[in-house]
Amino acid sequence: MYVAVKGGEKAIENAHAWLAEERRGATDVAELSLAQIREQLSLAVNRVMAEGSLYDPDLAALAIKQARGDLIEAIFLVRAYRTTLPRFGCSNPVKTGDMACDRRISATFKDAPGGQVLGPTFDYTHRLLDFKLAAEGEVPKAPEGPVRLEPMPHITAFLKGEGIIQDEPARDDVPGDLTREPMEFPSTRPVRLQSLTRGDEGFVLGMAYSTQRGYARNHAFVGELRIGKVVVELDIPELGFAIDIGEVELTECETVNQFTGSKTEPPQFTRGYGLVFGQSERKSIAMALVDRALRWDELGEDNVGAPAQDEEFVLSHADNIQATGFLEHIKLPHYVDFQSELELVRKLRRKAEERMSEEAME
């Protein structure tokens, strides 16, 4: 245990004041507004909302500003604020098949029903610095594209029609809530998905990359990646029906994976799934790959000892807030612990020196 620091209130106040000064930066430079962060750093805002488990672009922008751009610190701020909010109900499952897609691509079918929609993406950029942005000039307006009102069917629905992808019937049980109940192992797939969507993007990405390099024998295709807004509905008992309470932007990824079959099921494709707040392509794909790797037991596959197949390892280390808290606590005072270990090392050294002296005399 570490001992509390006493009498350091003034030093802490000064540290906070200095932190605020560093956050503001040079006063001859205009201060960032929340609207600027929300609109121009939208991908950072999306990550904070996803891993903070709170869909509010303005609060995420505020957290990023307060944290000086440290996204993990911003996620911590959002999660802490989230715990103060009352919960007055649970929304119905969103219908991603009715999503108004800004982007929808498939790596499995060139002529996907409903068409491919490239949308705003870095995929086809040259990854060269654009120095015109440093001139702070106006960005040319994108040409008006077609307004898509028709729902786009999921790619996996067509594979399901042929009977060559595993059927995943709707669950009747109420899924566990990771924000209210502690993680238990083995966990259910809904809880695993909650953990992955809240998990650190870099960690989940690393686990997903390991599966692609052969540490799970799990080859995947992106069946579909779609980004867009979906309506959120809430049942109102007094009314007897559900009402729309707003809409959220989501990124959904379904991977199509090989499956050799089992004693009860023929060879077919299986799925990995990822669903994340905002435009979060990398995270949703990585989440789908790790989700599929963690399904080895459910599908009767062999565990080859890959890290991404170890449920407890993945889920216990995915949360960047828990990891940060445990890691950063070691910079707090541990004077008593260290003094006891220091005394132990000194004692061992004295005994070693005495033994060496005795051996030299012999």
Rank of each mutant, 00 (worst) to 15 (best):
E13L: 09
E21R: 13
E21L: 12
E22S: 03
R23A: 14
R24P: 02
G25P: 01
A26I: 03
Q36D: 11
S42L: 05
A44Q: 12
L54V: 15
D56M: 11
D56G: 10
D58A: 13
L59D: 13
A60I: 10
L62F: 06
A63Q: 01
I64H: 13
Q66L: 13
D70Y: 06
I75K: 14
F76E: 15
V78W: 11
Y81F: 08
Y81P: 00
T83L: 12
F88R: 07
P93Q: 13
K95R: 14
K95E: 14
M99E: 12
A100H: 10
I105T: 07
K110Y: 10
K110Q: 11
G114L: 11
Q116W: 08
T121P: 03
T125W: 02
H126Y: 01
R127A: 14
R127D: 12
K132I: 05
K132E: 13
K132A: 11
L133S: 13
E136M: 04
G137E: 14
G137Q: 13
V139R: 15
V139M: 14
G145N: 06
P146L: 06
L149F: 04
P151E: 09
K160Q: 11
G161V: 04
E162D: 05
E162T: 08
I165V: 15
P169Q: 07
R171L: 09
D172Y: 00
D172E: 07
D177P: 00
T197F: 02
T197R: 10
R198P: 02
R198V: 02
G199L: 01
D200R: 00
E201K: 11
G202D: 13
F203C: 00
L205A: 03
L205W: 01
A208R: 00
S210Q: 07
R217N: 15
F221Q: 06
F221K: 06
G223A: 04
E224L: 05
R226V: 09
V230M: 03
V231I: 13
V232D: 13
E233F: 11
L234Y: 03
I236S: 06
P237K: 12
E238Q: 12
L239M: 12
G240E: 09
G240L: 10
D244T: 12
E247R: 14
E247D: 15
T255C: 11
V256M: 04
N257R: 02
F259R: 02
T260Q: 11
K263E: 14
L275A: 06
S280M: 15
R282D: 15
K283E: 02
S284Q: 01
M287R: 00
D291N: 07
A293D: 01
A293R: 03
R295C: 12
R295A: 15
R295I: 02
E298Q: 07
N303H: 10
V304A: 01
P307M: 12
Q309F: 08
E312L: 03
V314A: 02
V314L: 01
L315E: 05
D319H: 08
N320Y: 04
I321P: 07
I321W: 06
I321A: 04
T324C: 01
F326T: 01
F326V: 04
L327I: 04
E328L: 05
K331F: 05
H334S: 13
Y335T: 15
F338W: 14
S340D: 10
E343C: 01
E343Q: 11
L344W: 06
L344Y: 06
K347M: 08
M361R: 15
M361I: 11
